[in-house]
């Protein structure tokens, strides 16, 4: 173990790293594999692995290390069980301020949101991943591209496709 200030083994450095990356990793795994509890477990396991190997992984390599481990863990679990997406359950609607809209409007709105959430859950995996990282986690196309090591152009294409797919699925309401 090295004692240098920026070592991954330094507890403060590790904590800081965890706090700035855990949440996005969790979203990423969730969108990819569709199970939030499982995503949280994988986040935990990957970071424990990082800690146990902290002397071998420098902090600037840590991010790709954790993402690689997490993705592999996710894939090996997904192989064992047919992943069924549970987006409707965990994706919640932010509480908006009290509205004075008519009950009918509120109901239609609710119906629309249900339909939208279902349509998102039914998106092809890569499209959903990109769409949600962009809309929920507010990541730029560049940041999303870096997560999965592809070009920005590829992400832009997926985002475009995701919107077209959603549009078709939702129909004219």
């Amino acid at each position: 173990m090295s004692d240098s200030k920026n070592s991954t083994c330094d507890e403060q450095v590790f904590d800081q790293f965890f706090k700035s990356h855990a949440k996005l990793l969790r979203s990423y795994l969730y969108y990819k594999f569709g199970d939030l509890d499982q995503a949280e477990d994988i986040v935990q396991d990957s970071f424990i692995k990082l800690w146990n190997n902290c002397s071998k992984v420098s902090i600037d390599k840590a991010k790709s290390y954790v993402y690689t481990i997490a993705t592999n863990l996710g894939i090996s679990i997904a192989r064992h069980q047919q992943v069924k997406f549970k987006h409707q359950k965990y994706i919640t609607q932010r509480k908006s301020d009290v509205t004075n809209e008519s009950p009918e409007f509120v109901m239609l709105e609710k119906e629309y949101m249900e339909k939208l959430k279902n349509a998102i859950a039914d998106l092809p995996n890569r499209q959903r991943e990109v769409f949600l990282l962009s809309r929920i986690d507010k990541k730029t196309y560049r940041e999303i591209a870096e997560l999965s090591n592809v070009s920005v152009k590829a992400i832009e294409k997926l985002m475009h496709k995701a919107l077209v797919t959603l549009r078709k699925k939702i129909g004219n309401i």
Binding site: A22, I91, L116, I120, R135
Partner: peptide, 22 residues
Amino acid sequence: ILAGADTLDLAEYDVDAALRNI
């Protein structure tokens, strides 16, 4: 679609608790 998607959020994540767990 965009306006609807932008009101969505993920179930909360307690980063501190997760860190304690680790």
